[in-house]
Amino acid sequence: MNRPIKPGESDEDRMERSRRVGWIDLDRIGKSRTLVIGAGALGNEVVKNLVLSGFEDITIVDMDRVVLSNLNRCLFFREEDAKRRSFKATALADMAQRMNAACRVSGMVMKVQDLDEGVFRSSDVVLGCLDNIAARLHVNAHCCHLGRPLIDGGTLSTSGKVQVVIPPDSPCLQCSMNRTHYRALERRFSCTGSDTTFFEPKLAAEITTTSVIAAIQVREAIKVLSGREDRCLHHLLRYDGLDNQALELEVPLDPDCGLHRRQ
């Protein structure tokens, strides 16, 4: 016999409206481990969406500190964080944790290049919220090597992109790069012989585009964990907020890409 129901009980279930979507596997999402790399604007929006979507084990990695110019697009950072120069990863983790006590949100203050491979290995999905090509290549290589789904986002002014990499079949981030990417990377790490200088370009950024891109990233993560890879972005989505256009682009797998040759 079915359990008796009570009037209004559906409003006592945090995820009741999500359950109505039907195809979302909330049980698997709740048990999954999610790695978010980058705690800037995209990281803030992505983590907010993850917590609201029922993800309960989230690790955030970032080496940077909060500054006042982050506050036009970072939901979880406060002026006090900028004054204290709080670390982004822990400030974001602390605030996200407050959204749902059942979640385990942890912040790791470090360069992604120093992150133990075990953290990648133990993650069910990786969300790239990065601001540079070197870190993207590093995360991409680890995800391809370990067979972890990577959902990478990027923004520039009012345009953005999301690329879904599901190893081993998907083209990876490296497959879509060309000489202009490597030149941009070289400019960022310019070695004079006696020392290395770091050039960090100040890129145009605003919250509405960030929100759109982060929302797409998390929705793709929900699909991956719900066994709906068949409905994921096959390659890359380009979004143009000024002209209200979104276009799914095919990225050809590069036969010379070392990450695919090894597989």
Binding site: I133, N178, R179, T180, H181, A184, R187, V251, P252
Partner: peptide
Amino acid sequence: DSGAYVLRKGKRLLRGQ
């Protein structure tokens, strides 16, 4: 600007090489 660019033909991104 000296950033990264890609080239699109229809719905396909073209590989640099």
